[in-house]
């Protein structure tokens, strides 16, 4: 599904050079629920952004469905992001000026879909995250957990094959976190959506079926989570 080969990411500022990712090789298979763990600053977000085509690696090859994306134009990348990938960010990143349902419609906006159909799919996505009663609210009128559920609904609305979630529960208390986790697990189980999630929470990580550990820009472990460990 998504394949990373020899990915390096180096940030250069005037004084220092930070190697955020050092020769990373990773292949995420269709239908997997992968969690990524590692200490702060080890390059998890960088990795996720590169997987999601939001950022370019300094060197290495990113392939989506076997197709290297290096030579893709801005427009082609936008289309890939739009159709294949859904993002969930730690700090939600909802658009304040839009209502909940308009936020959820966002990925559909960049497709050739009628307004009525967009609305229908957005409402269905909100239904899945249990927010059918809050569609006309604005993000500022919602709790953190509700906001993250809106963000997940937005990621779902376009029916992407893969969802990339960067610490989706990082800003939430454990009860809310559990709720979000349940939604993601159900998505993976029932709809076969591939999910890659960065988390600091061992407990959450152990609910997924593959755990990758990072340290200093390098992959140090990649293990299937055994049912018994849960």
């Amino acid at each position: 599904m998504i394949q990373l080969q020899d990915i390096e990411k180096v940030y250069r500022t005037k004084t220092i050079e930070t190697v955020a990712l050092n020769r990373v090789n990773l292949h995420v298979e269709r239908g997997e629920f992968v969690s990524i763990m590692g200490p702060s600053g080890c390059g998890k977000s960088t990795l996720l952004n590169i997987m999601g085509l939001l950022d370019e690696p300094t060197s290495g090859v990113v392939s989506i469905d076997g197709q290297p994306v290096k030579t893709h134009s801005d427009k082609q990348l936008a289309k890939l992001r739009n159709e294949k990938i859904g993002f969930v960010f730690q700090s939600y990143h909802l658009i304040h000026d839009l209502s909940v349902v308009d936020n959820v419609e966002l990925p559909l906006l960049y497709r050739n879909i009628s307004g009525g159909e967009r609305r229908k799919r957005a409402l269905a996505a909100l239904e899945k995250v249990g927010l059918s009663t809050r569609t006309r609210h604005f993000p500022s009128q919602l709790s953190g957990g509700q906001r993250q559920r809106v963000a997940i609904a937005r990621a779902l609305a376009g029916a992407p094959e893969i969802i990339l979630a960067d610490e989706p529960t990082g800003n939430l208390d454990s009860v809310m976190g559990e709720e979000i986790m349940e939604i993601l697990l159900r998505l993976n189980r029932e709809e076969g959506t591939t999910i890659v999630m960065v988390t600091h929470d061992e407990h959450m990580a152990h609910k997924t079926n593959r755990l990758i550990r990072f340290f200093d820009g390098q992959q140090v472990a990649d293990s299937l989570v055994l049912e018994a460990q849960i």
Partner: peptide
């Protein structure tokens, strides 16, 4: 900026 980032993440091209 954040709105632009979000829009790009969900499929808006620069021209859009």
């Amino acid at each position: 900026a954040s709105e632009i980032g979000v829009r790009k993440a969900f499929g808006a091209s620069s021209n859009t």
